[in-house]
Computed example of a mutant assay.
Amino acid sequence: MSGAPAIEDAVVTGAAGFIGSHVVEALLQRGARVVGVDRRSPREDPEAARNLSKALEHPAFRLVECDLVSDEIKPWADGADTVFHLAGVPGVRPSWGGAFSQYLECNVLATQRLMETCVSLGLRRVVLASSSSVYGDGSGPFREDGLTAPLSPYGVTKLAAERLALAYALAPASPTSVVALRYFTVYGPRQRPDMAIGRMLRAVLTGRPLRLYGDGRQRRDFTYIGDIVAGTVAAATATATAEAVNVGGGNSVSMLDVLRCVAEVTGQEVPIVSDAEQPGDVQVTAADITKARALLGYDPSVSLIEGIKRQWDWLSTHTPTVTRALS
């Protein structure tokens, strides 16, 4: 936005992840100096190495291997003007049962420790990755001032992290403002392999059936990674003190419609096996993006069919072990 401060020194937590690695690249392209923070090492984790391959070659990028739950934060946060806090444990279905302690530590405690450090250092802005899971179920479109009633332990931890960060921003004389972005079903190149569109495309590549939960009429607001990155970077310089903002694709579609799109892009039907609905899965996600348009100048531009095509093209060239097995 006009008159907004430039991003010069940025920190991106979760830098080796799907969204984080794309944000890192976008910031480097804008001329920022970027410290990427992740507990995964590219030397030991092939996915981290792949996601950060471009950034690691850039002179303005530095990677810090750090666990936000237990390691010292201040040394690499000091001097930043913006922290993009994108680290966390994702996934609705795995968050039930004994894994919850990890969600609690990585999504809530890590956020609290980071906010304490940012405020103590007087950092200007934290952009936090929240989730549409904070809303729970409903017919949508969901507005930021509407009810939040998460239906999964994952959603509970994302809402807790969001409220924590906003509380720090609203504390008297706090130097650190916060924009919490409620992401809606992000997809595109580098997408986590457990997510729906990636699973569909891999089913086509391998011939191994996709497990389709429920009747396929569940609707999701799919958001292409390039649009997510644009909204995330814009949140760093938006005029705000403590705001939660939806970042969605602006169009909620059924899983059956997505299967048809994948078939159109790949030229093959997706093999499927039906399974029961899973705990925590909602029937509808749909974002009201009025606030994002006004506050961030956000305007999603990539259609679902085009985004799936881009992800298919990327997947087809970045899965050598799969393509070799099929040859």
Results as ranks from 00 to 15, higher is better:
203 A>K: 12
192 R>D: 10
173 A>I: 04
163 R>N: 12
153 P>K: 15
201 L>R: 08
121 L>S: 05
182 R>F: 08
193 P>Y: 06
179 V>C: 03
174 S>R: 03
159 L>M: 15
196 A>N: 04
136 G>H: 11
85 H>Y: 01
166 L>W: 04
177 S>G: 06
134 V>T: 03
109 L>C: 02
195 M>Q: 10
95 S>D: 06
145 D>C: 14
127 V>F: 01
145 D>W: 15
98 G>H: 15
94 P>N: 00
171 A>L: 09
94 P>E: 07
141 P>G: 04
146 G>W: 15
115 M>C: 02
190 R>V: 00
82 T>F: 07
196 A>V: 14
184 F>A: 02
128 L>V: 07
164 L>N: 13
118 C>P: 00
180 A>E: 05
162 E>W: 01
190 R>A: 00
126 V>A: 08
136 G>N: 09
139 S>K: 14
82 T>D: 03
158 K>Q: 08
109 L>Y: 06
113 R>G: 08
136 G>A: 13
158 K>R: 15
189 P>M: 14
205 L>I: 14
158 K>S: 10
196 A>Y: 11
179 V>M: 06
163 R>W: 12
160 A>M: 15
154 Y>P: 00
130 S>N: 05
87 A>L: 01
111 T>I: 10
197 I>M: 03
87 A>W: 00
165 A>R: 01
97 G>K: 15
142 F>V: 04
185 T>L: 08
196 A>G: 05
100 F>P: 04
133 S>I: 06
95 S>L: 15
95 S>F: 10
154 Y>I: 02
165 A>F: 01
136 G>F: 11
159 L>T: 12
111 T>Y: 04
181 L>E: 00
190 R>K: 10
88 G>R: 09
116 E>R: 13
113 R>P: 01
149 A>E: 11
187 Y>P: 02
171 A>S: 08
182 R>N: 08
95 S>C: 08
92 V>L: 10
110 A>L: 09
82 T>H: 06
169 A>H: 03
146 G>R: 15
179 V>K: 00
171 A>G: 04
192 R>M: 09
188 G>W: 10
105 E>S: 08
165 A>E: 01
92 V>G: 03
157 T>F: 05
199 R>D: 02
132 S>Q: 13
168 Y>L: 06
185 T>S: 07
95 S>V: 08
179 V>A: 05
105 E>A: 12
145 D>R: 15
189 P>I: 07
136 G>R: 12
109 L>N: 01
116 E>K: 11
176 T>F: 12
163 R>D: 11
157 T>E: 02
92 V>M: 06
106 C>Q: 10
112 Q>Y: 13
191 Q>I: 07
130 S>T: 09
179 V>Q: 00
159 L>N: 12
123 L>F: 06
187 Y>F: 09
133 S>C: 08
104 L>W: 15
196 A>M: 14
112 Q>K: 13
105 E>F: 06
89 V>R: 00
176 T>G: 07
117 T>G: 05
163 R>Q: 14
142 F>L: 11
131 S>F: 02
172 P>L: 13
171 A>M: 07
96 W>G: 00
197 I>A: 00
112 Q>G: 05
183 Y>C: 04
168 Y>F: 15
168 Y>Q: 08
206 T>F: 08
204 V>Y: 03
163 R>A: 10
124 R>T: 02
160 A>W: 14
183 Y>E: 04
112 Q>S: 11
164 L>T: 13
120 S>F: 03
